[in-house]
């Protein structure tokens, strides 16, 4: 009820029309951001940290995040763990089964660039953004629950900036550096990803 009481005040503050659309944005974005139901699935050790974040000490519920056991009822996919080449088509299938609007958080070094399996591994997909668009990357091996929560809040901020009827610029699939054929998630300024650092899509560039 509080929310509905606040809306007229919000509308009044906006001069010269656009009132309905802006108000609708606000309502819809808040609804979306406050109920990001995530898909219950984990791939490796990061999933343990995901479970810890969902459990009572860190508590996803206070962000309105509840796990659902089917992709058809979820808004958010947290890819938590090492994605092997064998699993990759399944993850893509799950992603495609999610209804729009849908978001992806890549959790942990493995999902960003292969992590500890970057070298000397033939079976790990080096970066989930090679197959599905990723909104937020949470670095770490594994990221602490605080980092994951921070990533979820960053995603909420992203959602709150959306406009109704206008497609948000979805992050594309990962760029591959053509000279080395390696995907790069290295920050251009420092060249390093710090543990527990959250990278927004526009920070991800090909290092050249």
């Amino acid at each position: 009820m509080d929310l509905i009481k606040k809306i007229p005040a919000y509308i009044e503050r906006i001069p010269n029309g656009g009132i309905l659309m802006t108000g609708l944005d606000w309502v819809l974005n808040n609804a979306k951001a406050s109920s990001m139901w995530y898909m219950l699935f984990g791939l490796a050790c990061c999933a343990i940290e995901l479970m810890a974040t969902g459990a009572s000490r860190y508590d996803f519920d206070r962000l309105g995040m509840i796990f659902r056991a089917t992709p058809r009822q979820t808004d958010l996919m947290i890819v938590a763990g090492t994605l092997t080449l064998k699993m990759a088509p399944r993850v893509k299938l799950l992603y495609e089964q999610m209804p729009d609007p849908k978001y992806v958080i890549a959790m942990g070094g493995c999902t960003m660039h292969g992590g500890p399996f970057y070298h000397d591994s033939y079976s790990v997909l080096k970066g989930v953004d090679k197959i599905i668009p990723v909104d937020i990357h949470v670095a770490g091996c594994p990221p602490r629950p605080e980092a994951l929560l921070n990533g979820c809040i960053a995603l909420q901020d992203l959602i709150k900036g959306e406009k109704v009827g206008r497609q948000r610029d979805r992050p594309g699939l990962r760029h591959i550096d053509p000279s080395t054929n390696l995907p790069l998630l290295v920050r251009p300024d420092t060249g390093l990803i710090r543990p527990n650092q959250i990278l927004m899509p526009d920070q991800l560039r090909v290092l050249s």
Partner: peptide, 15 residues
Amino acid sequence: PLRKDYAHPNLVVRP
């Protein structure tokens, strides 16, 4: 894969 002479395009050898 576990043969010692196995090579795969996905495999990046550790420097």
